[in-house]
């Protein structure tokens, strides 16, 4: 997101504030991207209330809860890594980023088993079992796969951002006096968390 270190002949312009502003604008686009899905969810839930209710009972609240805790905790460690960087404690900052990535993997492994269980029960797009269900449940599971899938994709992108940040810390491009990229990656990570905060009750807690 930041435009700090390109070709030397050309304007060397550093503006951390502007970088954060650009990142926020980007986060809005992500918000609205998921927003489109939330609109679809809202409409279909409004139209098929009973069926959404029934379908939601197939989901395992415990797995959802574990994932919620994993993301909330990783969000905290991501935020703390900025504090550590600001205080000049680079090693601790790096450790916290690794912890964040670790929780991201906990989330993904969990998700893998959750999807795996659904698929082995014959609930996946286009499956005979799913198509035999009422329309509302087909839509529920369609949305379930798309929304949690897109969310997991964002988790993966967040991990890639953090790996990139770790490399830049190693190269000295991120330090206690220039850490806006770390801030921006953390912002992205918090957005992933924010979206999950809404996905969790909407899919796991409506029975």
């Amino acid at each position: 997101m930041s435009a700090t270190d390109h070709a030397a002949v050309h304007h060397v312009h550093r503006d951390d504030y502007g970088s954060r502003m650009g990142m926020w604008l980007f986060l809005f686009t992500e918000l609205i991207l998921f927003g489109g899905l939330f609109i679809i969810y809202a409409v279909y839930r409004f139209v098929h209330q009973q069926e959404f209710h029934l379908a939601a009972q197939e989901l395992n609240t415990t797995i959802g809860l574990i994932n919620t805790i994993a993301l909330l905790t990783s969000s905290m460690t991501a935020a703390m890594s900025i504090t550590a960087m600001q205080k000049g404690n680079v090693r601790f900052s790096k450790a916290l980023i690794w912890v964040t990535i670790g929780f991201a993997f906990v989330f993904m492994v969990n998700k893998y088993f959750e999807w795996g269980a659904k698929i082995s029960h014959g609930i996946y797009p286009g499956s005979k079992d799913l198509l035999a269900k009422p329309e509302g449940e087909i839509l529920y599971f369609g949305l379930y796969y798309v929304m949690t899938g897109l969310h997991t994709l964002h988790v993966i992108i967040g991990v890639i951002f953090f790996l990139f940040i770790l490399r830049q810390i190693k190269q000295g491009k991120i330090a206690s006096d220039r850490y806006v990229r770390l801030e921006n990656s953390a912002l992205y990570w918090h957005l992933v968390d924010l979206i999950w905060i809404f996905l969790f009750p909407l899919f796991y807690l409506i029975h």
Partner: peptide, 29 residues
């Protein structure tokens, strides 16, 4: 459930994402 989710988001937004300490323009955005 949605109300509690909003409260949680408010905390994430203000503290984890530092919105509380940003300029007013960020809040307008």
């Amino acid at each position: 459930a949605l109300f509690i989710a909003c409260v949680k988001s408010w905390y994430v937004l203000n503290y984890f994402m530092h919105m509380k300490y940003e300029d007013i323009i960020f809040k307008v955005f």
